[in-house]
Design a protein around this nucleic acid. Structure first.
Length: 431
DNA sequence: TCTGGGGTCCTAGGACCC
DNA sequence: TCTGGGGTCCTAGGACCC
């Protein structure tokens, strides 16, 4: 059996742990730059607020409604969900983290345990120890476990845990489950299935295998069909190292100046290098993309992407920032107002053995840079991120005076909460 | 004025090898 | 009129996930 442990309205719940006064109040959390709604409390969902609604439209739609608004605070969400995962880890034989707010667990060797009671207890423990409400779905396949977790979330009678462990329960659950809510069925497939009269998960599961194969000719949707019928088919992805890493942001406003753009790109590149080092890998390709604002149809549009290959694969901040600057130079065109840029690193592999090139830096120099990165990472981790950055990452104030902004503050975040779980100076008293 | 930021997998087709 | 039979690697595009 599989279990999925899913945080309810994850970002909203993180905020509410430190704002208990917002219980029962509509709450939304915004994307970077306070752009769109990315998380909603049940009250906000009930008001009809859709995920992805631009914030300025939300204000126009509900000028008089009291809605609590937060900028996203990933430092807080990362820490809170890590605490949840720690508890899950100790409760199950094996698990893998599927996303920031979801965790799959394998329940092998737990056949003698009452799964329903076990899940209810796990929910209670997580709520009590972290403040995070979770929903738990348990079933013989991951797709069915996802279905179960939806029911656990929707009906309080389940006490936050729903188990699908008999043929009768499976059929009943699938009959009540819309096909477009099935894990692995997106907008496109749902529309096609609808065209064939498939409305519920059960409609789909009951189609003949050969019909699914001929109609879609697609292994992925075939697996979903098998899982809905109780056959384990979606591979278990263990915590694999990422094959590509991307850091990108939209700007607060638009940027035409090359040097300003370069500073942002240097920060994205530095962040990519950090992420590479966290999973102990190096990359061999550094790509940069830039975009103008597609919503501004009155302005000239331009986008481009360029990648630079590293002679020696690396995770060094200096190397990757330099490579990103070369790539930016290749695609930058003056006269445009840029809205977004990003750095993507690919060709990711192990740092050892070192693929050393005769015409590149020496092995000694390479080791020196690795040591330097290690020291910087340690300082930034213990004292605070961006305590040490490259000169190229330093933002300059327009007037040239005072303290320059750091990367984390370069985006708009008018409603960001404190970080009471990760910063001593921001511990708060709950009243 | 204001519109997010990450990832994965699969397949077809082209370039190239012998 | 008729032109072999194996491979590999890479890329682009399309679908999906959170």
């Amino acid at each position: 059996m599989y279990a999925i442990i899913d945080c309810d309205n994850c970002y909203v719940s993180c905020e509410r742990v430190f704002r208990p006064d917002l219980e029962g109040v509509p709450v939304v959390v915004l994307s970077n730059n306070d752009g769109c709604v990315v998380a909603r409390s049940n009250e906000a969902k009930a008001m009809g607020i859709k995920a992805g609604t631009p914030f300025f439209q939300l204000q126009q739609m509900f000028p008089d409604k009291k809605i609590a608004v937060f900028s996203s605070n990933y430092e807080l969400y990362g820490e809170m969900t890590a605490r949840v995962v720690e508890i899950v880890k100790k409760a199950v034989p094996a698990y893998f983290r599927y996303s920031i707010d979801e965790c799959f667990a394998y329940l092998h060797g737990m056949d003698d345990i009452d799964h329903k009671l076990w899940g209810e207890e796990l929910h209670k423990k997580i709520k009590k120890w972290t403040g995070m409400p979770v929903s738990i779905g348990i079933a013989p396949t991951k797709t069915l476990a996802k279905v179960a977790s939806h029911f656990a979330k929707k009906y309080s009678g389940y006490k936050h845990c729903c188990v699908i462990d008999t043929e009768e329960k499976r059929r009943k659950a699938l009959r009540l489950f819309s096909i477009d809510d099935v894990w692995g069925v997106g907008r496109r497939y749902a529309a096609r299935l609808d065209g064939y009269g498939v409305k519920t998960a059960l409609d789909f599961a009951e189609r003949h295998e050969s019909w699914v194969r001929v109609t879609f000719n697609n292994i992925v949707i075939m697996r979903t069909w098998m899982e809905l019928n109780g056959n384990d088919a979606v591979p278990n992805e263990e915590m694999a190292k990422k094959k590509s890493i991307c850091t990108s942001r939209s700007f607060n406003g638009m940027i035409s100046d090359y040097n300003e753009l370069k500073t942002h790109v240097a920060n994205y590149a530095a962040r990519c290098a950090e992420k590479l080092r966290i999973q102990d890998t190096v990359c061999s390709v550094v790509g940069v993309f830039i975009y103008t604002n597609p919503f501004r149809e009155d302005l000239m549009q331009y986008w481009n992407f360029h990648e630079t290959r590293l002679i020696t694969p690396s995770a060094s901040t200096i190397t990757i920032v330099n490579a990103a600057e070369d790539a930016l130079k290749a695609i930058f065109r003056p006269g445009y107002k840029y809205k977004k840029a990003g750095v993507i690193v690919m060709g990711i592999g192990n740092p050892y053995p070192l693929h050393h090139d005769l015409f590149d830096i020496t092995a000694e120099q390479f080791q020196k840079m690795r040591k330097l990165d290690k020291v910087i990472d340690r300082i930034n981790k213990t004292i605070g991120s961006e305590t040490i950055v490259l000169g190229a990452q330093q933002y300059t104030r327009p007037d040239g005076k005072g303290k320059a902004e750091v990367f984390a503050n370069a985006i708009k975040h008018d409603y960001r909460s404190k970080n009471p779980t990760t910063r001593w100076a921001e511990i708060i008293r709950l009243t």
